[in-house]
Design a protein around this nucleic acid. Structure first.
Lengths: 343, 343
DNA sequence: CTGTTAGCGCCTTCAC
DNA sequence: GTGAAGGCGCTAACAG
C-alpha cells in the first residue's frame, strides 16, 4: 500500500480535529477529553504512528546525542571506557556517536567538526597523542558544546576532565618492587607531551626518592607507543651496563612488547627482570609470562563517571544561569596495583 | 556579547536581502551575482556562521547517520570491523551511531528502537548470539530503513548480508592438519543457533569426508563462548579415551582458553595436540604458545564492504523505483589459513 | 539574478 | 476542551 510515515497531521485530518489536539492527546495532556484522547491514540496505533524524534529534537534544540572521540577502540582499555559510557548514556536515553582519531590530529579535528555539525548535546573526548593544537576544542567551547575529557586530557585550562590518579598506583608499584628486593628499577614511559607520561614520571621519581633509591637518568626511557618504539626503548634498557632488575612499563601493550624482546635476549621474565605495567588488560592472563603486576585503572568506571559529569552538565546548565562561577570538574580516579603472579 | 548562533536569517537582515539569497550565495549557487555572493560569504565568516546540519537533515530527510549494532567492541575482531565501517563512512561524510547488544536480545531491540527514532539512514548489524526473534528487524524493514547484516547474520529471507566464507578456510585447516599427519581432529564449535557455527561444522564434516577420515561424533563439542563454556568443552575433549591430536577452535579466544586448559593437563601445545582457530587476532602473537595457525577472516575488509553495500543502497534507491526486483546482496568473503608457527 | 511563499513534523502560546 | 497561528533553520519551487 502506501508507504510514507504517518504524522500527526494525517491523524488530525482523518479525525477532523486539529494537529494541536492530536499532539496533546498523544502526550496525555490533561486538558483533553477522554473520548478524543482515546480516539486519537487508537488511530495512532492503527496507523503505526511514531513521533519523529528528529523533528522533536530539532524544535527542542536537544538531540540526545553524545559524541565520543578517542584514539582507537581496539585497545581493551578504551573499549571498556566506551562500555561504561554507553551504559550510563543509555539509561538516560542518550545515544553515542563514535569517532576514532587513530592518533591523527587532522582526523580528530574533522571528527569534532562533523559532530559539532550534528549538534551533539555534548562530547566525551580522549585526545590523540599527536594533538598539540587545541583550537578545535576552543571551537566547541564557543559553540557551547560541553566537553568532558577522559584519560588523555589536553594541556588546557578551565576544562572538565577525569583521569586516573597514576601517582598512587606508581607508588604502590615501586614499593612492591622494593619490598621484593629490587633496586635497579627502570621506567619505559610514553611520549613526553602526554600528561599521562608526565604523571607517571613524576610518580616514579617521587616514589624512588621517598625510598631513597638512586635514579640514574638512563633508567627512564620513552616510547612513542608503537611496536617499534616499544622495542627500541626496551633495547636501550637491556643494553645498559647496569641492567635494570625491574621494569615498569607505560601500559600492558608496551610491557608485552618489552617482555617479548627480553625473552629474545634470554632474560628470565619476572626473575632476572621483573615487569610491572599499567592497565591490567584481561588479555594478559593468556600469556605464559605476563607482567607480574599491573596497575588497574578502572576504565569502565572512568567511562561511567565521565558520562555522569557530562549529563549533569547538560541537565543543570539551562543556558547562561550563573556565568560568574563556572565550576570545572577535575577528577582523578584512584588506581590500584593488582598482583598477577604472587609467588 | 550575544551568544545565539547566527542563522541565515540574521545575515539576510543585516544585508537587507532575503533568506533564500543568502542560502544560495552560501552554497555557491550559479545564479547569484558575484558581488552579493561575496558580501554574504564575508559576513558569514565574520559572524562565525555555521549551517545547522540538524535543520538541513530535517528538511532533506537525510541524516548522514549510520547505526551500527554489534555484540561487543571489546573483541579485536569486531573493533576491526568498526574501523572498516568508519573509514568508508567518513569518506562519504556519514557518522556512526554505535550500540553494543552485549549478546542480550532485549538490549538489541531497545537499541534498534532508539536508532530508528533517530532516523538513521541505514543500519549495519551483527546480531546477538541470543537473538531468536526478529521482529525488530522486520520493524526496520517496514520503516524502510535498509540493513546490511555482517558476520552474525539472522536466519531470515530477503536480507542483505556479508560474512566470511568459512567453509573454504575450514577446508584449508583440515588439509593442513592432515598433511602434517594428524588424524584425530576435533572441533570446538560455537552455539548451534549461530549460522557461523553451522557453517563451521558443515565445512569440517565435508573436509573430513573428502579426506576419507572418520569423524566420531564425540570429536565435535560446542561452547557458548563464555570462558566457562570454553573450558568445559575443552575438558570433554581432553578426557576422551581417544584423545584428539588436533583441535580446531571456534575462534582465537576459545583457542586461548583451550590451550590454557591443555597446558594445565600437561599437554604439549602444537606437539601433543595441534591447535588451529579462527580470526587470527593480533594478540595471539604475544602468546608463547599460540594456535599453530588461524583462519584470517579479514574483519576490516568485511566492515568496509558492508558499508559500501549500505551506502550503495542508500544512494541508488530513490524511494520506490523498481519495486518488482529488489536485489539482495549476499556476500561471502573468502577466508584464509594463516600459519603462525611454520616449523 | 533575486524575492516570495510554502513547507518539513512538531510543540506552544494565545484565543475561543 | 479544542482550534488557529506561529515558528525552529533551511531549501526549493514559483515568480518576477
Amino acid at each position: 500500500m502506501e508507504s510514507r510515515k504517518t504524522t500527526i497531521t494525517d491523524i488530525a485530518k482523518k479525525l477532523n480535529i486539529s494537529k494541536s489536539t492530536v499532539s496533546r492527546a498523544l502526550s496525555n495532556h490533561a486538558s483533553i477529553g477522554l473520548r478524543t484522547r482515546m480516539r486519537v491514540q487508537q488511530l495512532a496505533t492503527e496507523l503505526d504512528y511514531e513521533p519523529d524524534q528528529t523533528a522533536i529534537h530539532f524544535k527542542q534544540r536537544k538531540k540526545f546525542l553524545i559524541g565520543v572521540i578517542l584514539p582507537s577502540i581496539s585497545l581493551e582499555f578504551f573499549s571498556s571506557i566506551v562500555s561504561g559510557i554507553e551504559d550510563i548514556a543509555y539509561k538516560k536515553n542518550y545515544t553515542l556517536l563514535l569517532g576514532q582519531s587513530r592518533d591523527d590530529e587532522e582526523r580528530e579535528k574533522k571528527i569534532v567538526e562533523t559532530m559539532k555539525n550534528h549538534r551533539v548535546d555534548g562530547m566525551l573526548i580522549s585526545i590523540s597523542k599527536n594533538t598539540t593544537n587545541y583550537e578545535h576544542f576552543e571551537l566547541l567551547r564557543k559553540n557551547k558544546i560541553p566537553i568532558v575529557f577522559f584519560d588523555r586530557i589536553p594541556n588546557m585550562n578551565n576544562i572538565h576532565y577525569i583521569a586516573s590518579q597514576l601517582e598512587s598506583g606508581m607508588k604502590e608499584a615501586v614499593n612492591f618492587l622494593i619490598k621484593k628486593g629490587h633496586k635497579q628499577i627502570a621506567l619505559i614511559n610514553g611520549p613526553a607531551n602526554l600528561p599521562a607520561s608526565k604523571e607517571r614520571l613524576q610518580g616514579f621519581e617521587n616514589a624512588m626518592k621517598k625510598n631513597k633509591i638512586k635514579l640514574p637518568p638512563e633508567m627512564v626511557v620513552s616510547s612513542d607507543l608503537t611496536k617499534e618504539g616499544n622495542i627500541s626503548a626496551t633495547q636501550q634498557l637491556l643494553h645498559l651496563k647496569r641492567r635494570p632488575d625491574a621494569i615498569i612499563a607505560f601500559n600492558d601493550y608496551v610491557a608485552m612488547d618489552a617482555i617479548q624482546q627480553a625473552k629474545k635476549a634470554k632474560v628470565r621474565i619476572n626473575k632476572d627482570i621483573c615487569f610491572i605495567s599499567f592497565a591490567n588488560e584481561a588479555i594478559c592472563n593468556y600469556m605464559d609470562h605476563p607482567p607480574m603486576a599491573s596497575i588497574e585503572q578502572f576504565p569502565y568506571q572512568q567511562g561511567e563517571k565521565a558520562t555522569e559529569i557530562l549529563l549533569d552538565l547538560l541537565e543543570n546548565s539551562p543556558s547562561e544561569s550563573q556565568e560568574q562561577e563556572p565550576h570545572y570538574h577535575n577528577i582523578l580516579l584512584p588506581s590500584q596495583l593488582v598482583v598477577r603472579i604472587s609467588k
